[in-house]
Amino acid sequence: MSIREELIVPKCYYPWETVQSPIANAFDEEEKEWYDNDYTFISEEGIKRCKPQFLSRVATYMNPTCKSIDLMRPCARLMIYITIFDDYFGITPRDELQVIADRVYEVMMGDEPNPDEIGILRQMAQARKEWLANGMPQFWIDRVSINFYEFIMYGMAEEIPFRQVENRTYPLLAHYLSFRKYSIGMWPYGDLIDPATDSPLPVHLYNHPIVQRCREILSLVIVIQNDFASIKKELEIESESLNIIFILSNQYNLSYQDSCTEAMKLHDAYCQELDDLHKSLPDFGEFQELVYDHIQHIKLQISGCANWYYNSGTNRYEPKGFIVPQYGREGDEIVIPHSVFVKK
């Protein structure tokens, strides 16, 4: 029996509740329209792969206390466009990715996409308008824009050397976590707590080291969650190295099963740290309840994301679930139109 047949991937559990969203499937039909109207740079086959992933449900599952369709709609847009961005531009060279990141930042901060620019920018601009219409302050727009930029340049760009099919290499665990905590997208995902709860966290509270550590733990836990969820698919990809199970196996000469055990130990330690920090927050004065509630929603994002993996019906982690990264490819998908990101 092969390693693949014998591997038992552990399931993630949490010492806090999992809340069910009252609007969990609210955007199932709308997101199909978004794909058809603004994701036409993906091939027809690529769009077919996207629709059964239920990416809009990531927003509702991870922000399960939100009952407002209007508050959640731009969050659902972000969940989709950050995921498709990562899939589609995952092997783009760093210098070209820099150009794209700069343009994304401009649009998220207020610049309007040109008519001939790629449709994903229209989704970003529309989300920004909806957040502003729902009362989100400019300092929060600044925050999510910066965090999206860092997702691209501190995360995706740092993965490029390990995405070379002809030269499979593994980062060390510490290095992997240093960039994967950005490329997993959880810094901007975590920002969605503010609009989903209609409670923007002031800058001085957001910058507090305890809050920043809790946000970092959110990212690190979801890295491991995601790697468990995608391991079945990634075992089939001969060149894949960016999964904590592969990395632990390579670095410490472990079986994949023992690597799963070690990864879960790390996952559980992060969760315990988050729970401990939440229970022992420093004195935030008049903002105590606001900060406590924000950290509570970080925890709900973690358990909500696991709930999405296990119970949403997504087919994202099945064979051919992802769209094909496009740099330099021809055939079943179109080549990335990088030039549309460059202002004439």
Rank of each mutant, 00 (worst) to 15 (best):
P171F: 11
N315M: 07
T60F: 08
D198G: 03
G90F: 03
S241G: 09
Y14E: 08
I244P: 00
S56Y: 02
T65D: 08
D191V: 03
F287L: 07
T314G: 11
D38G: 01
E106Q: 14
M1S: 15
E45A: 15
Q288I: 11
H297E: 10
G155N: 05
I295Y: 01
Y189D: 05
T197L: 12
D95E: 13
K181D: 04
I141A: 00
A269Y: 00
E289H: 13
C214W: 00
Y256F: 12
R49L: 03
D116P: 00
H338R: 10
K344I: 06
A263C: 03
L192H: 11
F287R: 10
K51A: 14
F54T: 08
P52M: 12
D227G: 06
V211Y: 01
G328K: 11
E112C: 08
I118N: 02
K233A: 06
H208K: 10
I184Y: 05
S312H: 04
S183C: 14
V340Y: 04
I100S: 05
Y81P: 00
I120T: 03
V165Q: 11
L78M: 14
W187H: 12
G304Q: 05
V9E: 02
P137E: 14
L132F: 03
E240C: 09
C75I: 13
G90A: 09
V104E: 01
S241V: 07
Q164L: 14
A59M: 00
D293M: 03
A24K: 11
P282N: 14
V335L: 12
V342P: 00
I160V: 11
I146P: 01
E273M: 04
E45K: 15
H204G: 07
T40G: 06
D332A: 10
R143K: 09
E45V: 11
V324A: 09
R213D: 00
L192G: 05
S255I: 06
I323Y: 08
I82H: 12
T65Q: 11
I336K: 04
